[in-house]
Design a protein around this nucleic acid. Structure first.
Ligand code: FES
Ligand code: FES
Lengths: 144, 144
DNA sequence: TTAATTTCGGATATTTTTGTCCACTATTAT
DNA sequence: ATAATAGTGGACAAAAATATCCGAAATTAA
């Protein structure tokens, strides 16, 4: 569904959010460890999230990654996904036609669009913060 | 959502079905042309569909690909997708955990599973034949 | 100021996916 | 039989995704 990079990105964002609600910055090593992802690759993905202003980074000792409170309180999954995978998953044709459009649709268009839109709405209405809280309460996990 | 190979595979199956309802076999070249896909690559994908008994192939002059009537009348998209991409898309965790299970779920599990199941039901309840008929009626297209 | 730490960015490597090529086999028609 | 045709299977090539490495830049503490 999502690329590996995107999966790592979402998990990382959730973990960083977990720490940010407690005003704690967190280093690359810890992120990679907690979400069980390759460290160097995770670094690249975090850079993308930084560029897209999803997470904040600070260099030097005491540095690390965090999510600003103002951002955290309305950061949905869609923003994270788009930052890494782009919006093809919401806009692209299910059968791979150059572009999805209702004028000259693939034969699966109507029903596929329904599912695709459901996915988009799910990601729009799910916040990173709310998922972070699930982790806190032990109702969800980021590895295994 | 689906791999490129799977997109080609679905389009090919639909086109072959179109011809099979008129009892016409169809060659690789024509398939690739009509679904706008690379010929050699499409050949590999068709081989997979043959191995998985989705389509039938015959060698020699007058040979080509077809779908048996008995198969055609209850061939759904799920079979085509699984033949090429496997079932990870129906079973895999949205956040990339080793396995999706409700006992130790990722924080997105419940809502993700809902969408994932919707997709599976869509593919199970959509037949290749019904999509082929859309093409016939000019209500759907396989390229552009 | 210096040393230590941590992210950044570019180069490189590996793996997977996508795509091509071609000799071979099976089949048909002459 | 022979030649032509069409799918098969294996080797190979290119591109994209995934992953690693390392020096540079920024920041902090001593
Ligand atoms: S045209 Fe294929 S999903 Fe819209
Ligand atoms: S555990 Fe992630 S979707 Fe089920």
């Amino acid at each position: 569904m999502f690329s590996k990079a995107c999966e790592y990105g979402i998990r990382a964002a959730i973990f960083i959010a977990c720490q940010s609600v407690q005003s704690r910055k967190v280093g690359l090593k810890e992120v990679a460890k907690e979400i069980d992802s390759p460290e160097s690759y995770t670094s690249k993905i975090l850079q993308k999230l930084v560029k897209n202003e999803v997470v904040l980074s600070e260099k030097g000792p005491t540095g690390g990654f965090s999510i600003e409170q103002s951002i955290l309180h309305d950061l949905n999954l869609e923003k994270v996904v788009v930052a890494i995978d782009g919006d093809q998953i919401f806009k692209g044709c299910g059968l791979g036609l150059k572009q999805c459009n209702a004028i000259k649709p693939c034969p699966l268009h109507d029903s596929f669009k329904e599912v695709r839109d459901k996915l988009q709405i799910l990601l729009q209405t799910t916040t990173v913060l709310e998922l972070a809280e699930k982790i806190e309460y032990g109702l969800g996990f980021l590895k295994r």
